[in-house]
Write a protein that binds this DNA or RNA. Structure first.
Lengths: 209, 209
DNA sequence: GATTAAAAAGACCGATCGGTCGGTCTTATT
DNA sequence: AATAAGACCGACCGATCGGTCTTTTTAATC
């Protein structure tokens, strides 16, 4: 079976462009992402983009997809490596904080910036962001529900707890970017940890502090 | 004592422009705010802006000031009308939620959008946003501390609790803009309420639910 | 009523935006 | 070897950006 070298080359540069775009967009937003600056950052010509995407909107949608894959790879998958139950719930939060702490993206969080850009702009881009957020919130709820069913977590409203954890995780972004760095991470960690411990009959499964 | 009608006219249109700008910026961000669209929205000419502000940056700083005044008028001041203690802490959160629920601004929250735009862009605009955020967080901490000292709240880390309340309040914005509206408001309310009740020796001071 | 100054408007400028067009280079097919 | 197709580029387009310059309107002062 032969592979087409032209297509391989195309896919490679396509991926490289998307990776650069996620990093750029985490700083300047998905709308602040321009062909001109992306071309310079990725080391390609401006017009070359239109080989891969018909217009900016399609590029933006693909950039979201790339960012979502990164979120899964660096946060969701590692967390799912934890044993089901309260530790897996905690894992989702902890890996998210690690993602922020290690400054994987120069802008802190792609989705924070992108959602802010497009929350009032209907269209395919917003729809894709909505899908990503629904997926993340749905994962939180299902992991929490599983923990509750296994008896490791006492809650009658998994969606409320999911909202709390997401809120405490998401607030780290503006706090670290604008105010002090370590305190925000420390407080977010402490807040979720104490909350989970207060809801769990087996708090010793969670880290000391 | 005579007043100069020309200056009065200037101040009036200046205020009108700022008010329009806060609403526009709550949707498109402080950077997405352009002279052209602001001129159309405010019903003035583009070049007229430069009578009041030397450049866009100075306008942005003033827009932040106007938004901060609105935040104080509609959230801080009403909350400070509550008796000191746990009820005043709760008031800060409740009035904030009311602000979001009533859709005072078309974009939901000016500061959420503005901070997102400028958290990676050093300069006077970012400094002004930082000042506003510090002021808000400082207020939360001081009101919480006062409640703790009066014995209505049991906490040894007011800054942690302030972070929690701010996070649960701020998360409402992306959730309401992107996902469902009422559930986000309901959950944010429930989360802070249960948290304050769990920390208070006098939970009966707070609303039932 | 003439002069002066603030407010506001109109025409315009260089830069950058998203996007098009014609063409080159590379690689697979025949 | 000839042809076709995908990847990629430089030049360019109309629109909009922040901002300047000049002029007109409005209102106070003399």
């Amino acid at each position: 079976m032969m592979v087409d070298g032209r297509l391989v080359r195309g896919r490679r540069s396509r991926e490289a462009i998307l990776e650069t775009a996620v990093a750029l967009a985490s700083v300047d937003g998905l709308e602040g992402l321009t062909f001109g600056r992306l071309a310079v950052a990725a080391g390609v010509s401006k017009s070359g983009f239109f080989t891969h995407w018909p217009d900016k909107e399609h590029l933006q949608v693909d950039v979201i997809g790339r960012a979502a894959r990164q979120w899964v790879d660096l946060i969701v998958s590692p967390a799912l490596g934890e044993p089901a139950g309260v530790r897996r719930v905690w894992g989702l939060h902890e890996w998210r904080l690690r993602f922020y702490a290690e400054e994987v993206l120069p802008g802190g969080c792609f989705f924070h910036t992108a959602e802010c850009d497009f929350d009032d702009r209907p269209g395919p881009v917003r729809d894709r962001l909505l899908e990503a957020k629904r997926s993340w919130m749905g994962l939180l709820v299902s992991v929490i529900t599983a923990a509750a069913e296994s008896g490791e977590l006492t809650t009658d409203d998994p969606e409320l707890l999911a909202f709390e954890i997401d809120a405490l995780g998401g607030a780290v972004v503006p706090h670290t970017r604008l105010l002090d760095r370590e305190p925000a991470l420390r407080r977010s960690r402490a807040a979720v940890l104490q909350r989970l411990k207060s809801l769990s009959p087996v708090p010793e499964l969670l880290p000391e502090e």
